[in-house]
């Protein structure tokens, strides 16, 4: 067993680009589900419009990358308006259904072969964000970093640049969230989550607050999608499927819904857990500690999800408030 490899891969998964993408998306879902009670099950739709917004505007329309990023953000706002206008007056579950459907429609339209000159069809769009690495002050292919004991913390300049930008975005998002949820605005969101009619009776325009929440949380998703696209220098339609939303929701719940740092801790742990289990199994299979009659290298990917799924189920049973949540709040839910 190569423990150094297992430990290094596990740790690195918690802080590299994939974790960052999920954390950004989960911060938005935390605002929706955790603070406002909006059942947005289509966060990946916001990611997709961000990714395709920047991808299409830079490749098909030849706009510079910074302009493309603004276009992506604009697409996120438009999507929030389109989704919110008809559904925010309805009960929470309707929004859930509409958002799932909308996200799927976006993915399928982008994948549609007849539009392939525009959106790339099944091939997606590639190589539109070369500028991003051109702005990198480090040498893209050189290795930076250090080793502590078994832990290998050396990354290429390209990865480090992406991680630096990604974590800056995460910190900014957390800062904005922290400021907002501890303000009177955040108080109204929480009251909408608890009881819309009570908030209404206190003179609050519920629709306005829900729309602002949908838009801001959606924009965090849009940023996540653009970061995904730009850091990979590629947009692939099938990367924006339903599963992504539910993993992001898992990340938010794991950290604790309605907690500012919840999605960050949740995202880091979720990816360390997945990668840790995967690397353990992989090493176990390679070194014949796990007999082939049970699993071989190909099945590792599935088995890790089974095990992590079991672990998450136990967490929900024994610590339903997530890692950061307040147990007293869950007790209140039980009393209602």
């Amino acid at each position: 067993m190569d423990w150094s490899l297992i430990i290094s891969n596990t740790f690195r998964s918690g802080i590299t680009q994939t974790a960052i993408i999920y954390i950004l998306a989960a911060i938005g879902m935390n605002l929706h589900v955790g603070y406002t009670g909006l059942m947005n099950f289509g966060q990946v739709g916001f990611m997709a419009v961000g990714a395709y917004g920047v991808g299409i505007s830079t490749s098909y329309y030849d706009l510079p990358l910074p302009v493309g990023i603004l276009v992506g953000l604009g697409c996120g706002v438009v999507l929030a308006l389109l989704l919110g206008m008809p559904t925010l007056r309805l009960r929470a579950d309707y929004l859930g259904i509409v958002t799932i459907a909308a996200a799927e429609i976006i993915r399928l339209v982008m994948k549609y072969q007849k539009f392939k000159d525009w959106s790339g069809g099944t091939n997606g769009i590639n190589g539109f964000a070369d500028d991003f690495q051109a702005w990198n002050p480090m040498t893209t292919s050189a290795k930076y970093g250090f080793e502590i004991g078994p832990l290998d913390l050396r990354f290429t300049g390209g990865d480090l640049w992406e991680m630096a930008i990604g974590w800056t975005l995460v910190l900014l998002a957390v800062l904005v969230m922290w400021r907002l949820v501890n303000s009177p605005w955040g108080r109204v969101l929480k009251s909408v989550r608890e009881d819309e009619n009570a908030a209404r009776a206190m003179g609050k325009s519920i629709f306005r607050f829900k729309m602002q929440s949908l838009m801001l949380g959606g924009l965090f998703g849009t940023v996540a999608g653009m970061f995904y696209a730009i850091s990979n220098n590629s947009v692939q339609p099938d990367n924006y499927s339903r599963a992504f939303t539910f993993f992001a929701l898992t990340v938010a719940i794991l950290g604790g819904l309605g907690r500012v740092w919840g999605p960050v801790i949740g995202g880091v742990l979720f990816w360390m857990l997945l990668s840790g289990v995967e690397n353990l199994l992989k090493e176990g299979v390679t070194n014949d500690h796990i007999p082939e009659s049970i699993m071989d290298g190909v099945q590792v990917g599935q088995v890790r999800f089974m095990l992590v799924g079991l672990g998450l189920m136990s967490l929900m049973i024994f610590r339903p408030q997530g890692i950061f949540g307040d147990k007293r709040e869950i007790a209140i839910d039980a009393r209602k």
Binding site: R179, P184, W185, R187, V188, E194, M202, K204, I332, K336
Partner: peptide
């Protein structure tokens, strides 16, 4: 509002709060 404190319940009902604007917040 069950998961808000008694004081937060009260403060919510204050009218014309500047901090209820997302930007000013």
């Amino acid at each position: 509002l069950a998961k808000l404190s008694v004081l937060e319940n009260m403060k919510l009902a204050g009218q014309l709060q500047a901090g209820e604007s997302m930007w000013k917040a």
